[in-house]
Amino acid sequence: MKAVVITAPGGRDRLEVQDLPEPDLPAGHVLIDVAWGACNWGDIQKRQGVYPDPVDYPAILGGEVSGRVAQLGEGVSGVAVGDAVAAITGPDMLRGFAERVAVPQAFLIPLAEGLDLRAAAAYPVVSLTAWHLLHTAASVKAGDVILVHAIGGGVGLALTQLGRAAGLRVIGTVGSEGKGRHALDFGAERVIPRDSEDFVAVAMEVTDGRGVDLVIDSLGADILPRSFDALRPFGRVINIGEAAGEPDFAVRKKLYERSTSFAGFEVLHAEPGSPRWRASVKGIAAHIADGDLRLPIAEEFGIDAIRDAHEFLESRRASGKVLIRVGGA
């Protein structure tokens, strides 16, 4: 089978499409004929060798996919061969950019028959991340104001739609003018270009000087410490990444300025297979089926053009998901 392999950490030239044996199928796993995969910033980090969790090289990249069930491992029930599914590929979020992948059953998202598999590949990581940010890592309530950095990206757009569905007011930042169009279309109240506006000032303006209830930060660098200045007293910042660089600041001092709190978040800590995870999968599937959760596709690439996909994602031009056509079903 064809698969995208990173032979050793480094530049895009380290990416290779190789012909590999099909994967084993352990008990409790489902073998998927992969139609589409989605390329995420974590794939870039794994290629570069800077991903927070260890990666054993060579490795097959790809952490989320869509396709159809090809075979059931021992002990699997409630799913049938031929079913349309989306999935996070497992705890290490690898092996998805291949013609077949074995996935733990707990990581599956069943799809309504007829749902476009191309669109479905965009949902697993970002939609479940957004759901658990709002309902597990934080406990939002109708009327709360949230500030989402990089609101034009996949997680940002999912947060916008799920936040609006929960009755929240959603504002967000983008790197430059024009990248927030989708967020506004999906119900964001205000999108702030960081290159021309002060997001702290805008946050205070839209909350009449009170500050926002929650900030979701995926950028780090100097944006993270300033995010605390946009909070109300007892507000919360949740960090989910450092796409703009590692921050360097005295976090304890910032917390005491408004008695705020700070947390990190990783979606798989929401325990796939647990009752709260099953509730999130059910909720996401319902939103997708109802058409009130939509994620735009920024660009798609064939599996043989994986280096071009990485280049596009690293260019920061994407507003929406970057897809990899594997089987193309």
Rank of each mutant, 00 (worst) to 15 (best):
11 G>T: 13
25 L>I: 03
26 P>L: 03
28 G>H: 04
30 V>P: 07
38 A>P: 03
39 C>V: 15
60 I>A: 02
69 V>Y: 08
69 V>R: 06
77 S>F: 11
78 G>Y: 07
80 A>F: 00
87 A>I: 11
87 A>W: 10
93 M>W: 03
96 G>Y: 08
97 F>W: 13
105 Q>A: 15
121 A>Q: 05
131 W>D: 12
142 A>D: 14
147 L>N: 09
149 H>R: 12
153 G>M: 09
156 G>T: 13
167 G>L: 07
176 S>C: 10
184 L>R: 14
192 I>Y: 07
195 D>K: 12
209 G>S: 13
215 V>S: 03
219 L>T: 13
220 G>N: 11
222 D>H: 13
224 L>D: 08
227 S>Q: 12
228 F>G: 08
229 D>K: 11
235 G>D: 06
238 I>N: 14
240 I>A: 04
242 E>Q: 15
247 P>I: 04
247 P>Q: 04
247 P>A: 06
250 A>I: 04
252 R>Y: 11
255 L>R: 10
259 S>E: 10
263 A>V: 00
267 V>H: 02
272 P>D: 06
284 I>P: 03
290 D>S: 15
292 D>P: 11
294 R>C: 04
304 D>P: 00
304 D>S: 11
319 S>Y: 05
323 L>W: 00
324 I>A: 01
329 A>Y: 01
